[in-house]
């Protein structure tokens, strides 16, 4: 008895489909996630940064304001993750800093450092006692 041509064609096709089913999953597998490129970072109007403080003496509070947004450091904190507006045309950011130390603290120093993604670190040291407010502009236009 000879098999029908339809059956003869279908049987290998069904076998192929059965073999191909698990392989399809492998072929369709989406690749691992990768971060955005350095170029896309440069185009972003918002920068993410670490704002770090190092104080010679314990402080009561440190408040840093950029535009309308403020971040307040508690005495145990030394780092905050912040976002700030940044454009390649302007290449600068102005920070308003308010520091309070306990009354018994002698004149002391507090270093404030900004580490933005893709940009060099910028830092400023504030000298004072009891309470002080300062404004500092970090600029990335000048040669680094």
């Amino acid at each position: 008895m000879t098999s029908s041509p339809v059956l003869a064609t279908l049987l290998p096709l069904v076998s192929l489909a059965l073999l191909g089913w698990p392989l399809a999953g492998v072929i369709r597998q989406e690749p691992a996630q990768q971060q955005a490129t350095e170029e896309s970072l440069e185009d972003s109007p918002i920068r993410s940064a670490d704002l770090i403080i190092r104080s010679a003496h314990p402080f009561t509070s440190v408040k840093v304001t950029i535009g309308e947004t403020s971040w307040t450091f508690d005495p145990e904190e030394d780092l905050k993750e912040i976002l700030f507006p940044y454009s390649a045309d302007q290449s600068s950011v102005t920070l308003h800093i308010e520091v309070q130390w306990p009354g018994s603290t002698p004149e002391t120093a507090l270093l404030l450092e900004l580490q933005p993604e893709g940009l060099e670190n910028r830092s400023h040291t504030i000298w004072g006692e009891i309470e002080i407010a300062e404004e500092v502009t970090f600029d990335w236009n000048s040669s680094e």
């Binding site: 597998q29 989406e30 690749p31 691992a32 996630q33 990768q34 971060q35 955005a36 490129t37 350095e38 970072l41 993410s48 993604e117 893709g118």
Partner: peptide
């Protein structure tokens, strides 16, 4: 795989 992430430390 898709659920794996590649991180380039030097990117930022």
């Amino acid at each position: 795989r898709k659920d794996q992430t590649i991180v380039e430390v030097g990117r930022t």
